[in-house]
Nucleic acid binder design. Structure first.
Length: 189
DNA sequence: AATGGTCACAACCGCCAGTTC
DNA sequence: GGAACTGGCGGTTGTGACCAT
């Protein structure tokens, strides 16, 4: 195990590695990710294999741009759930948590005026500039709008064509995914 | 055409919770 | 009960592509 960890390769996957991983999953199914390097000889960690499969190789994963409906859904669910990408992705068929997270960080945060602190930091370090930060809006501020979203969501029942047309805040809060802390934070508003 | 800045996205890292022994 | 292992998650980084100068 440690030997595999030590010599595990990093960086982008090539077609051959994808093929090995795909064949393994087809044969053995998912789970037991740490067995994959041992069984297949892949020089990747179990974690890396899992991530590659979940985010890229899974047959039902959608590629390409987010549709308007998906975008709308991400905005609404993010307002409701915050940065719980896996929960959000779970409500958007064919999209992974990584896709949703990237989409939010690159497109929506910009569109909605939520400044990406990471990018800000990068920009700042590259340009050594100061005195900026206008319009900064943290996601916690989004949560402050939750009350409004709550009403809106219930009103239109996510009027879109996905597989959960009747989702409501109640559904989310009673789902097994909804944690106690979320109950507290949501109903405290 | 060359160069530097920015964007978009795949992948890694660190932490945590659940499971097994 | 607790240590070790494993899988999952969110945050962050690395890098190729694209764009502006």
């Amino acid at each position: 195990m440690e030997a595999y960890e030590n010599e595990s390769k990093k960086g982008f996957w090539n077609a051959e590695e994808d093929s090995v991983l795909t064949n393994y999953v087809k044969k053995h199914g998912t789970g037991k990710w740490n067995r994959i390097p041992k069984v297949t000889g892949l020089k990747r960690s179990g974690k890396s294999c899992r991530l590659r499969w979940m985010n890229y190789l899974t047959p039902d994963v959608k590629r390409g741009e987010f549709s308007e409906e998906e975008e709308d859904l991400v905005v609404r669910l993010h307002s409701l759930l915050g940065n719980r990408w896996s929960l959000i992705a779970g409500r958007i068929p064919g999209r992974t948590d990584n896709q949703v997270k990237n989409f939010w960080n690159t497109h929506l945060s910009k569109k909605l005026g939520v400044v990406d602190k990471k990018k800000k930091k990068r920009k700042a370090s590259s340009k050594e500039r100061s005195g900026e930060g206008d319009g900064e809006k943290l996601w916690s501020d989004d949560l402050m709008e939750l009350g409004n979203m709550h009403e809106e969501i219930i009103r239109d029942d996510f009027g879109c064509s996905f597989s959960f047309p009747n989702i409501s805040v109640f559904d989310l809060c009673t789902s097994p995914y909804c944690t106690q802390s979320f109950h507290h934070s949501f109903f405290a508003l």
